[in-house]
Amino acid sequence: MSAAFPGGNDRAQHEAQLRYVLRLADTALVLGQRLSAWIGHAPALEEDLGLANLALDLIGQARLLLAYAGELEGRGRDEDALAFLRDAPEFANLTLAEQPNGDFGHTLVRQWLIDTWQLEIYQGLTTSRDTRLAAIAAKALKETRYHHRFSSGWLARLGDGTEESHARVQGALDELWRFTAELFTPDEIDERMHAAGIAPALPELALGWSARVDQDLAVATLRRPATQPYPWHGKRGVHSEHLGHLLGEMQHLQRTYPGAQW
């Protein structure tokens, strides 16, 4: 028996759309979770508040996107069922998002890379034929503009600060750059979404992203690392070893007390 899917799509299209939304949702969730660990331990009280603000925005994006994903899936899973009861292979976040916090420079470089990515993606999604996704993207875009102001500002202060800060962020950039290969490399899900008018084409976004990256790096007096070939697959559920530990901590209570209300 074949069920009708929203928009009259066939099953493959529907699965692709669900998967696409989960990629956005999980990236926001995992990054939000990473940032929230900084609260109470930042370099200055003002940065505790700043990082908390970023975490709240990202978790808010995750909640909206996960709720939508749950509806698309149609199996009765809400935002919490998806966040707390899926295992690592079912998560579709960018591998970059799950990388450890490291020092403040490491966290800021990771943040800036994802902010510049989200700027392109959310901007592109504001004209999506999926009106729900377009609305979420429009709201998220405002938040992301502030996030980028924050992260690029810090990139400049640390890149063009002291010798020590420059060395630390250049090192962080060199280490995290290999995860950028995944940002704009399209797969069949991206292509289906673009063909359906739901998502923007990644190769075009890549140009905008690259230009903005060069601009921000120049201000920060940082050197853009060489492209590295390893194609990470977090979007496809093949993660680095870090995600398992992150989920273990995040999901602990729901796993220990199955079925409980919180």
Binding site: P43, E47, D103, F104, R157, G161, T162, E164, S165
Partner: peptide, 13 residues
Amino acid sequence: AGRWVREAAAAHA
């Protein structure tokens, strides 16, 4: 741990 960050911001300013 945050000292190098605060110093960098002050130096940049």
